[in-house]
Nucleic acid binder design. Structure first.
Length: 426
DNA sequence: TCTGGGGTCCTAGGACCC
DNA sequence: TCTGGGGTCCTAGGACCC
């Protein structure tokens, strides 16, 4: 029993909002929100913005008035910035803790030996202080005997200021009393549909779910629900994944910045997204055996005719060559296109991903020329060195009127020489 | 006018086989 | 009233996550 391990979750507070504030310190203490791609919805809020009652996922056009009234700072999302700051936080955690799983852009699980409550507290405070000092972002850390309980502990650490950003659920403490204060829908893995089913049976709190009949839970919420229940009971079912498993699919899609009706615009967009997806594919040293294109009209426009469809093609020889993928994608969009509709979004999806090294050939298909590989490496190197759009396929278009709206984007402070912040001393 | 994007896992049901 | 049974594989769709 002495070598029992404890799970922990580090989570950056209001991550995107905090990133924006990092380079605009005058916004400290002021309400601030970050919008989704295309400036569509609110996807991050500072504490002050939450207090104003601005909901997560609320459409921008619906809360614009409220934002204006309270002079809320509004930002388009800036993933280059968030990705870079995330990497810095994860690097620090990786130096401090041996067993780390980066779970999302703003969260990481880690595992450590069971210690005294004082030792756990000290561990959390040290990590928190280091991240604050070296990156400048606030984080919260929760500890528990399972990942699910660590998630709950993290939530408490964040919500109750008295804990100062660190909270541990330790064996022997009164876990049941704590679970009785947690709404079942707040638990990791319990979404809206499950919450509704559970409510019908009078299961409303974490404690209710912990004590519910396991057979019933298994039947209603499938094995994932059964696992969650076991985790609430202190039995770890969801392991730490220290080595990230290879990606299984890649999707690139965006809403259009303005309505699109022509096949020409759709073809430019497919080319652009396929270029992004192919670069990502090579970045993870994979190739794809199946590609898919989908498009859709705006489903919120009840007055407009609706159309959505997708089409896929299997490749006899897996590839990661941009030009070939673009060619296939354009054939698919030609087949999908129907005139007379106003399109809102198009996307490409690569599935059946394989490791680059996997050299399975095909009897009646000539192997891919090694020149393709050299060309792609050169392309990637140039774009990495000089910026992601330095060399591109002409079919992607030049003016791109359909490109998404990002009216309020902050500079790429940390990833672009031209946008470095300038410090003035006097 | 205006409503994000990118993933994973699980299950039910159909097709197919012997 | 009767119409086999059991297994595998694939896919679409649902649910969930951040």
């Amino acid at each position: 029993m002495t070598n029992r391990k404890l799970y922990a979750l580090l989570d950056c507070n209001n991550f995107y909002a905090s990133c924006e504030r990092l380079f605009r310190p005058e916004l400290e203490g002021r309400p601030l929100v970050v919008l989704s791609n295309n400036d569509g919805c609110v996807i991050a809020r500072s504490a002050e913005a939450k207090a104003l009652g601005i909901g997560m996922g609320e459409p921008y056009h619906r809360c614009r008035r409220l934002l204006d009234t309270h002079q809320v700072e509004v930002f388009s999302s800036n993933y280059a910035l968030y990705g870079d700051l995330s990497r810095r936080v994860m690097d620090i955690l990786g130096r401090l803790e041996p067993e780390v799983e980066v779970y999302s852009i703003d969260e990481a699980f880690f595992r450590l030996p069971q210690g005294s409550p004082e030792q756990i507290q000290a561990n959390g405070r040290a990590i928190r202080a280091t991240v604050r000092r070296q990156v400048g972002l606030p984080v919260s850390i929760g500890y528990g005997p399972t990942k699910t309980l660590a998630k709950i502990a993290n939530r408490i650490a964040k919500k109750q200021p008295a804990h100062d950003g660190v909270f541990a659920i330790l064996p022997g403490r009164n876990i049941d009393q704590l679970l009785s204060t947690i709404e079942v829908g707040e638990i990791w893995g319990i979404g809206r549909q499950s919450t509704r089913k559970l409510a019908l049976r009078g299961i409303c709190t974490g404690l209710d779910l912990k004590n519910a009949d396991p057979a019933w839970v298994r039947k209603m919420l499938t094995v994932t629900g059964a696992r969650t229940q076991l985790e609430l009971r202190g039995t770890p079912c969801i392991d730490l994944e220290a080595a990230p498993s290879p990606r299984k699919s890649i999707v690139t899609s965006r809403s259009f910045g303005r309505p699109v009706t022509s096949l020409g615009d759709l073809r430019e967009a497919v080319t652009t997204y396929m270029t992004i997806a192919a670069a990502k594919l090579r970045g993870s040293h994979q190739k794809t055996g199946c590609l898919q294109v989908f498009l859709t009209t705006n489903r919120f426009r009840a007055d407009a005719p609706q159309y959505a469809d997708s089409r896929a093609v299997n490749l006899s020889l897996a590839t990661s060559t941009t030009a070939e993928l673009i060619g296939r994608g354009l054939t698919l969009i030609n087949e999908l296109y129907r005139p007379g509709y106003v399109y809102q979004k198009v996307g490409v999806m690569l599935t059946d991903l394989q490791p680059d090294s996997c050299g399975q050939g095909e009897l009646f298909v000539p192997p891919e020329s090694p020149k393709n590989h050299e060309l792609m490496t050169a392309l990637d190197n140039i774009n990495h060195r000089w910026g992601h759009d330095t060399m591109r396929y002409a079919a992607a278009g030049f003016t791109r009127p359909w490109w998404l709206r990002q009216a309020k984007k902050s500079p790429a402070y940390t990833t672009n020489w031209k946008e470095l912040p300038v410090v003035k001393a006097w």
